[in-house]
Computed example of a mutant assay.
Amino acid sequence: MLDVTDLRRFYSSPQGELARRLIARIARRRFSNCVGYSVLGVGFATPYLDVFREEAVRVLSFMPARQGVVRWPVEGLCACALVEPTRTPLPDSSIDRAIVVHGLETDARQRELLAEIWRVLAPNGRVLIVAPSRSGLWARLESTPFGHGQPFSRAQLRELMRDTLFEPTSWDEALYAPPFRSRALLRLGASFEKIAAFFSLPGAGVLIVEATKQLYRPVASVERAQDALGQFAPAAEPVGVAPAARLRASRRDASPARPRAFTSSRAAPGRS
């Protein structure tokens, strides 16, 4: 897993500054107004949180225990903490907006992580996830943080979100420009990004999905959960209740001493 010093070093480099600018532009467009909101960053999201500090009620940064923590912000009261991502010290429904960067792809407990974010989000809460794309060059080079952990296709990310009760509402891509180290080539990154995004070219380095918190589980998710449960739990023996018309007919034909209201072959409670 990436160390916090590696992440900080990357974002201090020209390559990391380009990645920050291109991703932050999309993040700001999606979360354009956070006045009065509580904003939470998960993973290593501090390069993308400064823009929300002037308008949000509070902005917090939770960094995984295995990754390490660095003080943020540099000036003023500390707003970051070293936490277990699947057990955060926040009450239910206490966060309005969440941003996950360098968090999902490096955690083997992806569903548990998203379930914890679902728990702390308010009923109208939204989450923005930045994850490396399987088709991009950035996910294939370990010289960048996006080259560590599990990259995703759009279909994989969509399925993961829906399994954890999030409904994707918008999709974006960023980092079309190859991860050059040369400053001269990096200056062309923003121009290359605009051209590639305009023509919807393949090969973006990251997928950015915005999703809303669902309050009710879809039928398909319930069926998948029941199928999974059936692998471990024995099948229950159903006890059917007779329809009203058939029940009335059976009462007319049956002996008054032994009325039968159930179609099950088992005796009614209290009778031999």
Rank of each mutant, 00 (worst) to 15 (best):
E193P: 15
P91I: 08
G205L: 03
R260S: 10
F44W: 11
R251F: 10
A267K: 13
R29I: 08
T144W: 02
V83Y: 12
C78H: 13
A98T: 08
V57L: 11
A115Q: 11
T5D: 04
A233E: 07
F10C: 04
A228H: 15
L186Y: 09
Q110K: 12
L18D: 11
S221Y: 03
V219S: 06
A249R: 12
P179H: 06
M161A: 15
G205V: 00
L160A: 08
T169G: 11
E167P: 03
M63I: 02
E173F: 08
T263N: 02
A24W: 02
I26P: 00
V222G: 14
L121D: 03
C80V: 06
T46G: 00
T212K: 10
S255T: 13
P178K: 07
D172V: 02
R251A: 09
R58Y: 09
F192S: 07
V120S: 03
R9K: 10
E112L: 13
G203C: 07
R21N: 13
A108H: 08
S32E: 02
K194W: 12
S143R: 13
C34P: 01
V130L: 07
V222Y: 12
K213G: 07
L77D: 14
D96T: 04
A115L: 06
R97S: 02
P14I: 01
T263I: 09
L82G: 03
Y37R: 09
R140L: 00
P73Y: 01
P218C: 15
E112M: 07
I195W: 10
I26Q: 05
E173N: 15
V130M: 05
L137H: 11
H148Y: 07
Q231I: 08
L77Y: 07
S12T: 09
A228L: 15
L141H: 11
F62R: 03
S32I: 02
F10Q: 03
